[in-house]
Design a protein around this nucleic acid. Structure first.
Lengths: 223, 223
DNA sequence: ACCTGAACACCGTTCAAGT
DNA sequence: ACCTGAACACCGTTCAAGT
């Protein structure tokens, strides 16, 4: 509102737009993010952004890659490949968790930015260090990132929708033993929400499979 | 447009609304789905829908569950548990693939409808038949459905965005050998898009892990 | 009880007009 | 080259007024 407290006029540029958009995402989530709100925060009109952006979709892609710049590999270099690999994936998860809706954004954006490439390269290195065959390592990068993204997106739903937890709890608690005997018997296990334990359990399964399984046959034939 | 060709006035109800919404989703994707369009298709105003729906979110949840009614287990009962399990997951995948955007809808909806419960029960049964421990079976249901949902959502992106494939291909093909040696070396494997081979490879890894791994320690402690 | 038109507070995107 | 206001074609949701 007070226009004189700023240096004449903030020079617009892509990075400033993307940073502002990420701030809005962190504060208000995906529902609160719009080109008009970004423009207002930058003290301009939405139309001005189209000098730097093709459209909202491009902003989403830029936001994702700029956020992924925070994903960092482990500092200490003497670690086992599995520890480095899991640490990298946990760093990726932390970045997605920091901003509400960023995981959903990642699920609907085809990532090709420099930070995605950097993370893929690191993942490939760790998987190769673990002894994964080429085809498995290539598929494994996708499998691991997709799973982590999806699990954060799911967690985001519970966080955003508020009473989602209670709704699932009620639905599962209310199942009839006659109609769904196993669901009834295992409902406590289904409802336990130890997200860290679940993540590590799943990652170990995925990693073991990627380094230990035979590459898919059709994959070989396709090359 | 021709109002006389219909029987006086279609009696509005939840199921008709949801079916119409699913038709629109199948034809125009998630971007083309709106309460106003559903209302127009039903020859009424958007406000009328609020008698049957709390809001758009509830419509999404109802759409998901109604679509999941089409997920069917294998007919022949003499199959191995693994074949039945994979067939069920492939049926789930086919349903998600049929409507553009349905997978994304599934990713942002907390499923608690009767058809979700039915599918969970079947998955639990197959995993138990395979010898999975209770805790693993419970976590496995989530792991399997989440992965299949995510992989279809990703596939949907490529389908909807049109030139996405080309963009990734260009980005990966253009990586410098110096900066990203592994990405450069494995770029052919990264770019091969045999979605069926990839899915079966991943499902076998997940299933093997669920039936063969130790349950997570923290999971046990939480109970 | 069910339906409706109009209104409210938003969207993304385009474009002619300004500097 | 960059910015802007106004316009266009949409949204979800609410509400008073109708039947």
């Amino acid at each position: 509102v007070s226009r004189r407290s700023r240096p004449a006029k903030a020079p617009l540029n892509r990075e400033a737009i993307v940073s502002t958009a990420l701030d809005i995402l962190e504060r208000d989530g995906l529902a609160g993010l719009s080109l008009r709100r970004v423009a207002t925060a930058l003290d301009t009109g939405a139309a001005s952004l189209y000098v730097y952006l093709k459209n909202l979709n491009e902003l989403h892609a830029l936001m994702l890659d700029q956020a992924l710049a925070e994903v960092r590999p482990l500092k200490g270099r003497g670690c086992f490949w599995r520890d480095s690999l899991k640490a990298l994936l946990l760093s990726y998860r932390r970045v997605l968790l920091k901003r509400r809706g960023l995981a959903h954004l990642a699920m609907s954006t085809i990532a090709t930015g420099p930070n995605s490439l950097r993370i893929w390269e690191l993942l490939l290195r760790h998987l190769r260090d673990g002894g994964a065959e080429d085809a498995n390592a290539a598929l494994g990068v996708d499998l691991l990132t997709l799973y982590v993204t999806a699990i954060v997106a799911e967690q985001d739903n519970w966080r955003t929708s508020g009473h989602g937890v209670g709704r699932v709890r009620k639905a599962i608690s209310a199942v009839s033993e006659k109609q769904f005997p196993l669901l009834f018997a295992l409902k406590d296990a289904m409802l336990s929400v130890d997200s860290n334990g679940r993540l590590h359990w799943a990652l170990d399964i995925l990693i073991d499979g990627i380094v230990g399984s035979k590459p898919p046959l059709t994959q070989r034939a396709a090359n």
